[in-house]
């Protein structure tokens, strides 16, 4: 049996929402190359909803599939909903990850949350 299931492979081979957003409303970075994976999430917010989500990822097959799934799940969510997106929910939606790759799903959700926090901080500073 291959290490990754079909859903993970499909997202790895055809990742959704790869790239950067020009003038993003928020940017979040998580992980570092020492541990093997690093993800950057870019978000565009409109009416308290994630209008657009894009990512760049340095990492293994699981890290890329997780990033793709997080971006797909998060798009259209309200900020509150997106902040509640858990690594377990991402891994579930991918129909499971190998045990030693579960940390990749943590990174994906964390990077998205960081991007939202970044947006909220900017809003505060903006005086809104």
């Amino acid at each position: 049996m291959p290490v990754y299931n079909e859903t993970v492979m499909e997202h790895f081979m055809n990742p959704r929402n790869v790239g950067e957003i020009e003038n993003p409303d928020g940017v979040g970075e998580e992980g570092n190359p020492v541990c093997g994976d690093m993800m950057t999430f870019y978000i565009k917010v409109k009416d308290n909803k994630l209008e657009d989500v894009k990512f760049k990822t340095f990492g293994c097959g699981a890290a890329i599939a997780v990033s793709s799934m997080v971006s797909e799940m998060a798009k259209g969510m309200t900020l509150e909903e997106a902040m509640k997106l858990t690594p377990a929910a991402v891994a579930d939606k991918l129909e499971g990850l190998p045990k030693n790759k579960l940390h990749c799903s943590n990174l994906g959700a964390q990077a998205l949350h960081e991007a939202i926090k970044n947006y909220l901080e900017k809003q505060k500073k903006g005086g809104k």
Partner: peptide, 8 residues
């Protein structure tokens, strides 16, 4: 590389 934040 097009996907990699390090390369960007």
């Amino acid at each position: 590389r097009q996907m990699s934040p390090l390369y960007a």
